[in-house]
Design a protein around this nucleic acid. Structure first.
Lengths: 195, 195, 195, 195
DNA sequence: TATGAATGAGGGTTCATTCAT
DNA sequence: TATGAATGAACCCTCATTCAT
């Protein structure tokens, strides 16, 4: 007798893969069922709807993400160390939840306005606050440059990290920590040779 | 008296807005027609299919993009100047074809394998070649750092620039050239204060 | 200044060809217009509707057919001579109105019940009456065999003649009269060698 | 408990009736569904498309037809007996597959050029070969008249038989064998009284 | 738990037809 | 006379969802 939560997680994993690869709208319930070796109707024993699968995938991912982020933020490190830790944590999440991250990247903009996905907008707000305050602290502490538009910088760092989910494949030649190190090196010191 | 190519362009502009905002799959032909103030069937007087609209939008954008890129590449500037020119040109294209760029970002991965959209894959190959060779020239000329994985650097620069289309709004407070300047400053010199 | 009836006849000829080749339902107004070197809408200057074109084609054909038939029937020949004359006249009409005959064969069953095409049903009734009475006269006069079901014979002769329109091409190696002669020979004397 | 192939056959039977009565193009999927007591969309659980229903109807018919024909042809009877057997078999098939035969008669010409319906053209070729060789054998054996154009004779016999599907109603007063007997009598010996 | 069959809403597309120019 | 553009109804088909078994 298979425990229900076990099966749910399996099925959600399958669904996430397909959503990530084909896009949420282009993914039919039947495709998910095919990948899971069952018929489309059977999924409705486990889930209320296609949308509820999407919700659970994103919620699970964001919960874990914020676990990691909160740990970092609660440590009250210096701005540069905080930035390094957040970026590293982000790449770890990409490693662990590649599919969910890819879905999030592609769909969150359309989803966020919907009541059901209000948690996405909420997460975005917290995210922005955490990053902006870190950057501001860094500028104040003269760790980060003061001559840049801080919102532009925020977007730059944010996008820079998360878009990686679109090409990242777990188990490749670079570990998430290694990728994080190189990204940080580029973001912090630039790609130009210092004069 | 609206000449035919004129009307096509108008309608394609409308379609591109809707595609960009709602996603290609989620956009119904009826929505496009609504935005254009006509009935769904009427669009088929001007276009063969929804997909052909998408194709024309992307093709037009890529043609103009490569006009700009080729001008830069043919100038045979030094690697750093080439990089700066390419990035600046990219932001100009984002400014001119915001909707098309956003569509391209979101859909090209699913589209490229299809025969009809082979030009996307082809463009991606040329794009990668242009950037990689510029970066390699820069490393050889000691303009760019030699200690970074060059493919990682390529992805970093590429994504960093184009994702901007997802938040950029033409007519905002920063001109494309101004944004390019700040992005280049971050990419080349980093956001950390020099020691 | 092209006389209107002239142009009508031209256009109806074109339409008949296309109807015959592709079937009435499968023929779009645009296809007809293409064949005529004009745009679909322009046909509506000449005709009220696609259906009115069909009607005029069939009416014209049947009018001419009955001209010929009535001439034969009014001559009050013997039954065998009447049959020969009717068959010959039929092949002449096939020669002259190949397209119309083909359309008639394929569509009349669906059309006849419609009020607009009541003339088809009426023609069929007259047709049947003419043939049945000829056959009956022939049986009475011991010109035709008495051991056959007369309605079956009627259908046999009728179909035998008109289906030829599906393969007949005007200008081929056999004249309509020659084909009529051979058909009559088969119908009257059979294909078996006489003992 | 309706097994799936059972249901398919039922639905195909319904579809065939409607196709035969209204013509393939004029038949909407809704009409078929109405006749079957379900909604249009539900048909797509059983079949890929309207066209695939048509294909299966025609294929099933032709397969059975050739079963019968091949049995006749393999028996290597004399030419006259072969002709009699083929005609009788044809009327039996008309009796069993009236709708399919009617569809075949009306649509095969438009369908045959399509790749999907290549089996129609193939069947026509085999059909023609079987009939022509039978007729030629008959002429050589002095069973059939030598003074007739053999292709004309072929068309005459072929059409004569199959058009019957357009008026034949199973369960009428004549059995298929009886109709075959009378048709054969007309075709072989003619309708005229022997001198 | 899963299947098989169906629902019903909607989506892309076609096409006869209209009408101002 | 003919064009160009649009209408609106209908069509084939897809798909999330339901439900008896």
């Amino acid at each position: 007798m298979t425990a229900s939560p076990e099966r749910r997680r399996e099925l959600l994993g399958t669904a996430a893969e397909v959503f990530a690869e084909q896009g949420y709208n282009a993914t039919t319930v039947r495709k998910i069922a095919d990948h899971a070796g069952m018929l489309a109707g059977s999924l409705y024993y486990h889930f209320d709807s296609k949308e509820s699968m999407l919700e659970e995938i994103l919620r699970t991912f964001l919960d874990e993400l914020w676990d990691g982020y909160d740990t970092v933020l609660d440590a009250e490190l210096g701005p540069r160390e905080t930035l390094e830790a957040l970026v590293t944590e982000s790449f770890r999440e990409i490693d662990r939840h590649r599919a969910a991250v890819a879905i999030y990247q592609k769909e969150s903009k359309q989803l966020a306005p919907q009541e059901r996905f209000a948690f996405l907008a909420e997460s975005q707000r917290r995210f922005e606050k955490a990053w902006l305050s870190t950057l501001e602290r860094g500028v104040a502490a003269e760790a980060f440059r003061a001559d840049l538009d801080i919102r532009l910088t925020y977007r730059f760092v944010r996008d820079t990290v998360w878009v990686a989910a679109s090409w990242y494949r777990p188990g490749g030649q670079h570990s998430p920590e290694e990728i994080a190190r190189q990204y940080l090196s580029m973001v912090l010191d630039g790609i130009a040779v210092r004069p």
